[in-house]
């Protein structure tokens, strides 16, 4: 067993979930004390904040923050009491990167995979045609899978969550209808499908025929992407990724110049905003 830092950096590099809880406010002798929490690790908890009660409560809260990928400062009493502010503990989650699954091994796929990598996604390209779905054509993808979309999603779908994205770029009904239907059965946060308005109208009819209801169609972003006037695969990739960000933040994505109000979504005050659980500061998705 190495040092705390070695365990932390090894877990981050291996993209295993890990969180670091550290006293950043409070008595001088506690500053910098740390707990490293790795749900899959042996040991699962390393280090100490100097008090067994505090360690226990912070470990519990850290596991909770890590499960949802949040990073925030929480306050406690010296022995872990709630509603006290003796120590401020900065809990930083290093959640595994979000996943983007791209169905369809086309030129747009290569560009989207590139932009998604820049944004920190773990990218899988999936296409049923072995001639097109090759690592040589998509070297930037973390994984290239030859499979039917519904079959692949039956395998990995249960692990998809709100931070993840499914992009259906096949615009071929025999691929994209099963892909969309299977993706709607997951908890994926973003689901988009490429195609002209005409293609999309036909697809909507087929999806309805496959039993997709209004709520399902409402989740589907199609035609995919923001209205940027994108033409090239690369520009389209930016329009898609822009839409993913806008959907996550609940914004309708006009230009900043044409809006008022704060630029950043997350900007709650750091002091005096403790809820019953003691969370304050900006709670943000972990970037890893």
């Amino acid at each position: 067993m190495g040092s705390l830092y070695e365990s932390l950096s090894a877990a981050i590099r291996a993209e295993e979930p890990v969180a670091l809880a550290e006293v950043v406010e409070g008595p001088e002798d506690l500053l910098g004390t740390k707990l490293l929490v790795r749900p899959g690790g042996d040991p699962a908890v390393m280090g100490s904040l100097g008090d067994p009660g505090l360690d226990r409560v912070v470990t519990r809260d850290t596991l909770g923050e890590l499960a949802v990928g949040l990073t925030a400062t929480r306050h406690y009493g010296l022995h872990g009491e709630a509603r006290a502010r003796d120590v401020g503990v900065f809990i930083e989650s290093f959640a595994p990167p979000p996943v983007m699954i791209i169905f369809g091994a086309v030129d747009f796929t290569a560009a989207l995979a590139k932009v998604a990598k820049v944004l920190g996604y773990r990218v899988t390209v999936c296409d049923a045609r072995p001639v097109f779905a090759t690592k040589a054509r998509f070297p930037m993808a973390d994984e290239v899978v030859v499979s039917w979309p519904d079959k692949y999603l039956a395998e990995v779908g249960p692990s998809l969550g709100p931070r993840d994205a499914v992009c259906v770029l096949t615009h071929d009904p025999k691929f994209d209808v099963p892909a969309v239907v299977a993706a709607l059965a997951t908890e994926v946060g973003y689901l988009g499908a490429m195609g002209s308005r005409r293609t999309h109208d036909e697809r909507v009819a087929r999806l309805r025929g496959a039993g997709v209801d209004d709520a399902g169609l409402d989740r589907l972003m199609a035609p995919i992407g923001l209205d940027l006037g994108a033409r090239t695969p690369e520009e389209t990739a930016v329009a898609i990724c822009g839409e993913i960000i806008a959907l996550r933040s609940g914004r309708d994505a006009p230009s900043l110049r044409d809006r008022d109000g704060p630029i950043h979504l997350d900007g709650p005050g750091e002091s005096g905003t403790d809820g019953p659980s003691g969370t304050d500061g900006a709670a943000v998705p972990a970037g890893g």
């Binding site: 990073t71 930083e92 704060p262 950043h264 900007g267 005050g269 750091e270 500061g281 900006a282 943000v284």
Partner: peptide, 29 residues
């Protein structure tokens, strides 16, 4: 970079954003 510096025998400090109020360019972490 940290690993390289430490391998070279250098001492290292780490600075992390732990709180942001109002407009700030980088998030905690």
């Amino acid at each position: 970079d940290i690993d390289r510096w430490r391998a070279e025998g250098k001492q290292v400090a780490v600075a992390r954003v732990v709180g942001v109020e109002g407009s700030g360019p980088r998030l905690p972490g």
